[in-house]
């Protein structure tokens, strides 16, 4: 049993490390198409991490919506604009070093804070299993107003995207 637990732990840490490596690939690869594929792999790694936390529904939604829809739309946009991204064109601006320094400082400070914080773990929550029925009841009960708001925003985004991307008539 101990060996099994140890194996699971090693697996989870390996998953995290692999996801981070793929995420570094997302921001550093020159070819945007490869970068989008790395993004898909990172999102699948995140979905696997959701499974570790027993959020099965969220993992399914993540794969369906992110990997299935968002990455597809991104690749579609890359294909439509690709011939501008040639090899000779610089892919990053001149802020690399200051950005790296600033983000390292951010990570150091925030990491120190969250290692020092005594997280009050709620034992009732750790043991709870959230089913899809619970999520649905919460969406239709406590969170019904944000739920309706999100559906309105979805419609607005849909109509807005169509109008923005529509070809204008030459007048």
């Amino acid at each position: 049993m101990d060996i099994l637990n140890f194996g699971i732990k090693v697996g989870i840490y390996a998953l995290m490390a692999g996801t981070l490596v793929l995420a570094v690939g997302v921001v550093t690869l020159r070819n945007l198409f490869h970068s989008a594929l790395c993004l898909a792999a990172t999102l699948i790694g995140t979905a696997a991490l959701y499974l570790v936390f027993h959020a099965e529904f969220l993992a399914a939604v993540q794969i369906l919506l992110y990997v299935g829809a968002v990455v597809t739309v991104i690749i579609f946009a890359i294909m439509l604009t690709e011939h501008i991204a040639e090899r000779s064109v610089a892919q990053r601006n001149r802020q690399s070093l200051p950005a790296l320094l600033g983000i390292l400082v951010l990570i150091a400070v925030t990491g120190r804070i969250l290692l020092k914080t005594p997280w009050a773990v709620n034992p009732a929550t750790v043991g709870a299993r959230v089913t899809v029925a619970d999520l649905g009841a919460a969406l239709m009960g406590t969170y019904v107003f944000p739920f309706e708001l999100v559906s309105v925003i979805l419609i607005a985004a849909l109509i807005g995207a169509v109008i923005v991307a529509k070809k204008e008539k030459s007048s």
Partner: peptide
């Protein structure tokens, strides 16, 4: 902060 391409 560093990508030039808007899709990136």
């Amino acid at each position: 902060l560093t990508r030039r391409n808007i899709i990136g």
